[in-house]
Design a protein around this nucleic acid. Structure first.
Lengths: 147, 147
DNA sequence: AGTGTTAGTATCAAAGTGATACGAACAATA
DNA sequence: TATTGTTCGTATCACTTTGATACTAACACT
């Protein structure tokens, strides 16, 4: 895809996709949220080829969703930690998951519970201002004019 | 990617990604939500090669996010409409957009307003049960055991 | 008859992906 | 000291996907 970046494209979705618009990147972010940090953990968890993994980790690091940290000096070893931007990707993951749960829900599914209440988490998207569920109210789109 | 489908994989995110885990599909869904229905509208809006577009529309149709409808008999013409599953993808789009707005927000951005209140929509993900923002409370993950 | 519109298909070079083998830099064990 | 193991990759190369471009089918319109 022509990754026509940042300030050109007025669509925030396009911009996000140029950063993490492929399945591997999203799965890496998922695993990072699950606590994985190391090359081999990611590789084994996803069954991804090491070449792919190297490239995806590098991109996510360049784009500021992960950061590399040296955790051992002597065999020089790095691990990958979520940055704030990476952590803020969690709502996206949950909404993707919510869709999958609803429309591809056959068989056994991983579940997420609120640790405090013990209830299963049901992620929905709402407008923080009005409190209304996204998609339930009419909206108006304003596209900025070029230049 | 090895699109290891449905009932095998317990992760709802993986399952969603095997359906719409590439940038073109997500952009098509975005445009479909914006009201586009026809081949040439999509093609011009995204600058996608017709071969790609044909394939992606076919996949999204097979997977049940779009449906083909004949809108003209005599030059036989079809258009693509969102199904319920496709419409339910909107929260995903909004959360992806919200991330882009926050972390790739330079320059002019498309905006969405609540038609009733006139306020700009600020999409956030919450747990419908507790009302807490996703990511603000500790959670417990339950992975089903195999077989 | 000629031009325009819509929804594609055909072709093919270029780029991306995936599987596998291998390498570097050590630690631990025999 | 030699061997094996661990971790984080790189090298190679066959295979697949993509993207650009040209073209076709089936009409309508002038």
């Amino acid at each position: 895809m022509d990754t026509e970046n940042s300030c050109e494209n007025p669509c925030p979705i396009s911009r996000s996709l140029s950063v993490a618009g492929d399945a591997w990147s999203i799965l890496i972010l998922r695993d990072a949220h699950a606590g994985l940090t190391r090359f081999d953990q990611f590789r084994k968890s996803m069954g991804i080829a090491p070449t792919m993994l190297t490239r995806r980790l590098a991109t996510l690091t360049e784009e500021g969703l992960l950061e590399k940290r040296r955790y051992s000096e002597h065999p020089p070893r790095e691990e990958y930690l979520l940055t704030e931007a990476g952590r803020d990707f969690l709502p996206v993951l949950f909404m993707i998951g919510a869709w999958g749960r609803k429309y591809r829900g056959g068989g056994k599914l991983t579940q997420f519970f609120d640790a405090e209440t013990g209830t299963e988490i049901q992620a929905i998207a709402v407008d923080e201002v009005t409190g209304a569920k996204i998609g339930t109210r009419p909206m108006r789109v304003v596209v900025p004019d070029e230049r």
